[in-house]
């Protein structure tokens, strides 16, 4: 028999409050191209991106600490598949432990030849040093910066 389908899509938008902590972090990126973390007083860990409380201790964080701009790769992946609403492949992104931080922050890796997966994965290795690059025009967002391999 004839089997029918109905097309439906969800069209709802959200205006998510960032709160004081993330707002301040993004303003520093936008206006000063600087990155900060928050220190968890109980564990001493500097959380980057900054959280107003630690999910390990459930204590409020108490101190801003400037971090980066250099750091090391903690993990990465290189995407070769097109996913709807996501960027055209290939692209590389992952997590970087910025200097003076204790947790890693996500971001894109740019300036790397990704055409050969195996070779690209040799360039982007866990532990490799990277530097943060900031966009000329910044809006106060995580995409205002990305990582490039530290020049030798």
């Amino acid at each position: 028999m004839e089997l029918l389908t109905r097309k439906e899509s969800w069209n709802i938008a959200y205006e998510h409050a960032l709160g004081e902590t993330a707002s301040w972090f993004y303003v520093q990126i936008r206006d000063h191209a600087k990155l900060y973390g928050r220190r968890d007083p109980k564990s001493g860990r500097v959380l980057v991106p900054p959280r107003s409380f630690s999910d390990q201790t459930l204590e409020p964080t108490t101190e801003w600490v400037e971090v980066g701009p250099a750091g090391r790769i903690e993990t990465f992946t290189i995407v070769y598949e097109q996913f709807k609403t996501l960027p055209p492949p290939p692209y590389a992104f992952g997590y970087v432990l910025l200097d003076r931080a204790d947790t890693a922050i996500g971001g894109f890796f740019r300036g790397i030849d990704l055409s050969d997966p195996a070779q690209a994965a040799q360039t982007l290795k866990v532990g490799v040093r990277v530097n943060t690059r900031f966009a000329e025009k910044r809006t106060g967002d995580i995409l205002d910066f990305w990582f490039e391999l530290e020049s030798k």
């Binding site: 564990s43 001493g44 860990r45 959380l47 980057v48 991106p49 959280r51 999910d55 390990q56 903690e74 993990t75 997590y95 432990l97 931080a101 204790d102 947790t103 890693a104 922050i105 996500g106």
Partner: peptide
């Protein structure tokens, strides 16, 4: 575990 993947790496992670 933590929601934040980046907290599962770096220094002194649980």
């Amino acid at each position: 575990e933590s929601y934040f993947i980046g907290d599962r790496m770096g220094n002194n992670y649980v």
